[in-house]
């Protein structure tokens, strides 16, 4: 609307004022829609996920490390060294 008025340059002053007011209202609406919550208590209650999550990652990675070492040992143990071709 605002651009329309600018482009046509024909709207009466009162209409232009109304348009500006409408634009301001639209902007306020956008900001109101995006209002977020503020619940500090959620931080504490979700620390559980941080603890369990970090623990789980360390456990999984530790298992993977163990598997890689085991794999290395097994591969070395079962690799038969072939005699070099003359």
């Amino acid at each position: 609307m605002f651009f329309k008025n600018l482009f046509l340059n024909a709207a009466p002053v009162t209409e232009a004022v109304e348009t500006v007011a409408e634009t301001a209202a639209e902007t306020a609406e956008v900001l109101a829609e995006s209002a977020f919550t503020f619940e500090p208590a959620n931080f504490v209650s979700n620390l559980y996920y941080m603890g369990v999550g970090m623990l789980a990652i360390f456990v999984v990675i530790a298992v993977i490390i163990g598997m890689v070492y085991a794999l290395d040992v097994l591969v070395k143990a079962f690799t038969v060294k072939l005699p070099k071709k003359q």
Partner: peptide, 25 residues
């Protein structure tokens, strides 16, 4: 393979941010 442990440690920011972001979302 021991180096993998640092990959785990560096995920701390994800879980900490989860707690922080839950204040707002």
């Amino acid at each position: 393979p021991k180096l993998m442990i640092f990959g785990a440690a560096a995920q701390f920011g994800i879980f900490f941010t989860l707690c922080l972001a839950s204040i707002f979302f």
